[in-house]
Nucleic acid binder design. Structure first.
Length: 743
DNA sequence: AAGTGCCCGTTGTTC
DNA sequence: ACGGGCACTT
């Protein structure tokens, strides 16, 4: 057991071995927080204080859970970890609980419920607004969706919200009420419901609460600063008997307020758990002194915070390099060149030491970095954006599978009832929707009723009978078939395969490949012994960060996605007012402090070398604008910074695309954006394509999307199908295209 | 019912 | 600049 405590500093040691009663570990960035959790679990097992199944560890992402499991496996001999050690996110933990007990809540919900993701949720909100006759322009669906979620997380229901004469408020309440009704009819739960209903189970049924309290003798929660009120409530319910709770987090890294995270959960921990002990881990093992000094200086500007200064014994290291590029393209190009140069210098070192990350505030910024990487032939991994499970064909296939377990899943039915086209048009769908609404049932039930009554046109009746028969026959195949077989069956019998085959385009080929990938994923699930239920739950709960490829040496991602990760080399891009801090956070002190915490998170990802970049001009909504440097740049002591003179690679004319460090603010320039110089030279990779020089069938190479095929040419625009990425439309002259061959 | 053309909002971060 | 939604066409 001594090896478990080896190399831990006194605070870490205390955090590992203080096992009884509530414990709050305030762990600064890079202070070995994950290490403490891993060792604590190992210690509990090693000391015989708990068997694996008596421990629950909650992580922020599924990816973090997997990593933690691996590290525990390395530390604990197999004999000590017989039994299931549960490491999960709050959401996946709640799904487990609900799959077991949801029936007991009564009402419409059963254990076969479907999980609605944000996309399904958005569709439902739109449908509700439509049904209520509310104008989407006056009541933006996104705002309503957000409002519903926020209300739910405050513990509100449509009935607890006071009626209001404010039309917006009134619309929200009406939409909220209908939304809940429709969710129930579809036997569907959204992400918020997962937490809320699990809490309700524990609150309403003492035996369930007792069961869980008995089972989990030790509970550990990572990233505690980002828990929301339902999660706090769950935590309290799960720890009411023993209070063996270890919460680990850093108030300075609370960055999920928009998701209802409440920083007070960690600040008020000692009020929630009066017997709590507090341990502060203030030694940083990750970053150089320079990087840490910058991070400390920045975070000190937050007023609402408990003072805590991190210190490190690491070397001072290199100064932080700042670069101001002329525009986003040059910013990206600079970053990529610097990465290549850096990696060349790291050559003798193991690949892990040459890993780099490019961090940005918004997903939209990823594009220029992707293009730059492709241009320079630098392999990269992109986190976020469109993940595998968000692709249309994958969602279609999953929708079929969802229907097999829960035919009342309206979102799934709507998605595939006419995919492939089987003659169920808009008119038919409208009748179906209206009937479902008037009867207060799912579309599936409405369909069954209409079929019985012959209440539709002959063509629609035949089409829907065929669809119903398809789903039912697949349902009967469910029990015996392996998952991979089942997916194949769905694609074959639904006609999806045939549809793609008939299209015969490159795009269809790509979609087929993606579906083959899904079949492989199903086969892997088969090997793990998973059932369809688990397979679908996993698909609904995986985050984009979860499939981060370890092998890639360059990772592009938002700062939010980078939470918990570290890299020897880090670039923080787009340090401009309005972008970072984001314009929507600039006028509210609380939001601004959260932006600053986000910047703090970004800074502290870096181990050895840090770059901060700004684009002097940036296109926003298609319009090029001059930018101001981020106020956060001013918060870093100048002594820690250095001007980066420009790309270190040779072959570039001196001065080209380079600027001084602190962007010299020329007020005139700021106020009057220069018009784009006519015929500004584009980078060399963009082979100029004369409008009309492409025709349908041409195979082309796009700088970002790769190989594709022209499927339509109209009024100077090109529609190009990219395998697996869908059809994109481009302005013929502006698109970075090269022809591969003419058909 | 499916395909084409035009208008408008969008990009803030995610389990 | 781009995609979704809608109206209009076949």
């Amino acid at each position: 057991m001594s090896h478990l405590l080896e190399g831990l500093n006194p605070e870490q040691w205390a955090a590992v071995t203080t096992t009884e009663g509530p414990l709050l570990v305030i762990a600064g960035a890079g202070s070995g927080k994950t290490r403490v959790i891993v060792h604590r679990i190992a210690y509990l097992l090693d000391q015989g204080l708990a068997r694996p199944e008596q421990i629950l560890a909650v992580t922020f992402t599924n990816k973090a859970a997997l990593e933690m499991k691996e590290r525990i496996h390395q530390l604990v001999p197999p004999s000590r970890r017989r039994g299931e050690l549960l490491i999960a996110t709050f959401h996946s933990f709640c799904v487990r609980m609900l799959r077991r007990h949801l029936d007991r809540l009564g009402g419409a919900y059963t254990r076969d419920f479907t999980i609605y993701d944000a996309d399904d949720q958005g569709r439902l909100v739109k449908a509700c607004l439509k049904e209520l006759g509310l104008d989407e322009k006056l009541y933006p669906p996104r705002a309503i969706q957000y409002g519903i979620s926020a209300a739910k997380n405050r513990g509100e229901t449509p009935d607890t919200l006071p009626p209001s004469s404010d039309p917006k408020r009134d619309a929200l309440i009406k939409a909220f009420r209908l939304y809940e009704t429709r969710l129930a009819a579809a036997n569907a739960l959204d992400f918020d419901d997962l937490l809320l209903l699990a809490g309700r189970l524990l609150r309403r049924f003492q035996d369930i609460a007792d069961d869980y309290n008995d089972r989990f003798r030790y509970i550990l929660i990572d990233e505690y600063q980002d828990t929301n009120p339902p999660q706090l409530s769950l935590t309290r319910l799960l720890t009411q008997q023993r209070q063996n709770l270890c919460a680990v987090g850093d108030p300075d890294q609370s960055i999920y307020k928009f998701r209802a995270a409440d920083i007070r959960n960690i600040l008020d921990f000692e009020r929630h758990y009066p017997k709590a002990k507090l341990i502060v881990l203030a030694r940083n093992y990750r970053s150089t002194k320079t990087i840490l000094a910058a991070a400390n200086a920045v975070i000190q500007n937050n007023r609402a915070r408990r003072k805590k200064d991190l210190a490190t014994e690491n070397a001072a290291g290199e100064p932080i390099r700042c670069f101001v590029a002329a525009n986003a393209e040059e910013e990206a190009d600079f970053v990529v060149r610097e990465i290549i140069a850096w990696q060349r210098r790291q050559e003798p070192l193991p690949a892990a030491e040459a890993r780099a990350a490019v961090l940005y505030r918004t997903n939209a910024q990823s594009r220029s970095f992707e293009e730059a990487c492709r241009r320079r032939g630098l392999p990269y991994a992109l986190v976020g954006g469109f993940s595998f499970y968000e692709r249309a064909e994958i969602k279609d296939a999953l929708a079929y599978l969802r229907l097999l377990l829960n035919p009342h899943d309206d979102a799934a039915l709507e998605r595939v009832v006419n995919v492939p086209p089987r003659g169920v048009g808009k008119a038919t769908l409208d009748i179906l929707t209206a009937r479902a609404a008037s009867d207060g049932v799912s579309r599936w039930t409405a369909m069954t009723r209409l079929l019985e009554e012959n209440g539709l046109g002959a063509r629609a009746l035949t089409a829907l009978r065929g669809f119903a028969a398809l789903i039912e026959s697949l349902q009967s195949a469910l029990a015996g078939a392996k998952l991979a077989e089942l997916v194949r069956m769905v694609l074959a019998r639904s006609g999806y395969d045939a549809m793609l085959k008939q299209e015969g385009t490159l795009e269809a080929e790509g979609r087929k490949q993606n579906l083959d990938e899904l079949i492989s994923a199903a086969a892997e699930a088969d090997e793990r012994g998973e059932r369809l239920r688990e397979f679908l739950d996993r698909a609904a709960l995986v985050a984009d960060t979860d499939d981060l490829e370890e092998s890639a040496r360059v990772t592009l991602m938002t700062i939010h996605s980078a939470k918990g990760l570290e890299f020897p080399l880090v670039f923080i891009a787009g340090l401009e007012e309005g972008l970072f801090p984001h314009a929507r956070a600039a006028h509210d002190d609380e939001d601004l402090e959260e932006e600053r915490r986000l910047f703090y998170v970004a800074l502290t990802r870096a181990k050895r070398q840090l770059y901060l970049t700004q684009a002097e001009r940036r296109r926003v909504y298609g319009e090029e604008r001059l930018t101001d440097p981020s106020r956060f740049l001013d918060e870093i002591p100048e002594a820690l910074l250095t001007t980066q003179a420009g790309p270190t690679t040779a072959g570039r004319r001196a001065g080209e695309g380079m600027r001084a460090l602190q962007p010299t603010a020329n007020p005139d320039l700021r106020r009057f954006p220069k018009p784009k110089p006519a015929g500004a030279p584009r980078s060399s990779w963009s082979a100029p394509a004369a409008a009309g020089s492409f025709k349908v069938g041409d195979r082309v190479e796009h700088a970002t999307y790769g190989a594709g095929q022209v499927v339509r040419v109209a009024d100077g625009k090109l529609d190009i199908a990219f395998p697996g990425k869908g059809v994109k439309r481009f302005v013929a002259e502006a698109a970075p295209l090269t022809r591969i061959s003419r058909q």
